[in-house]
Computed example of a mutant assay.
Amino acid sequence: MDKKEILDDMAAKTAEIAKAKAAEIVSSITADELRPLVESQIKLITDPLRDEIDSTTSPWVKIRNSIYIKLINSTVDTIISSIKSGLSDTSN
């Protein structure tokens, strides 16, 4: 076995160990841990809509943005479920 083969073998074993540890950590993430992250990201989307509601006189913009905000906020649980499903798929 030469130096390159030894290094390749070590790299493969290290990657295998890292993948197993990452899968263990990812599978332990709970919905309660994801919720604040998802909600903070949704806030980045809804804040400009809210700002536009506050700054416009157009009733249509107010109605449209209010509907968007309600729809976006109602998807939190779906987004969390989707993330958890994706995480569990990658940990297999």
Rank of each mutant, 00 (worst) to 15 (best):
M1K: 11
M1T: 10
M1F: 14
M1E: 12
D2T: 13
D2L: 08
K3P: 00
E5Y: 00
I6K: 14
D8V: 01
D9M: 09
D9R: 13
M10V: 07
A11T: 05
A12R: 13
A12M: 07
A12K: 13
A12I: 01
K13F: 12
T14F: 05
E16I: 00
I17V: 11
K19M: 03
K19Q: 08
A20D: 14
A20S: 14
K21I: 12
A22Q: 12
A23I: 05
A23N: 12
I25W: 08
V26A: 02
S27V: 03
S27W: 03
I29G: 13
I29F: 14
T30W: 11
T30L: 09
A31N: 14
D32A: 15
E33Q: 11
L34H: 05
L34E: 04
L34Q: 04
R35E: 02
P36G: 11
V38C: 06
V38Y: 05
V38N: 06
E39Q: 11
E39Y: 00
E39A: 00
Q41D: 02
Q41A: 01
I42H: 00
K43P: 00
K43V: 03
L44Y: 00
L44E: 09
I45Y: 06
I45D: 01
T46G: 10
T46A: 10
D47C: 07
P48Q: 09
L49M: 15
L49C: 14
R50Q: 15
R50V: 15
R50I: 15
R50L: 15
D54N: 15
S55Y: 01
S55D: 07
T56N: 02
T57Q: 08
T57G: 09
S58R: 06
S58Q: 05
W60F: 08
K62E: 06
S66Y: 01
S66A: 03
S66H: 00
I67R: 02
Y68I: 02
Y68C: 04
I69K: 09
K70M: 06
K70A: 06
L71Y: 05
L71P: 01
I72A: 01
N73S: 03
S74F: 09
T75G: 08
D77Q: 15
D77C: 12
T78G: 07
T78Y: 07
I79H: 07
S81F: 01
S81N: 13
I83F: 03
K84F: 05
K84L: 13
K84T: 05
K84E: 07
G86A: 15
L87P: 05
T90D: 11
S91N: 09
S91T: 14
S91P: 07
S91C: 09
N92K: 15
N92E: 14
N92V: 14
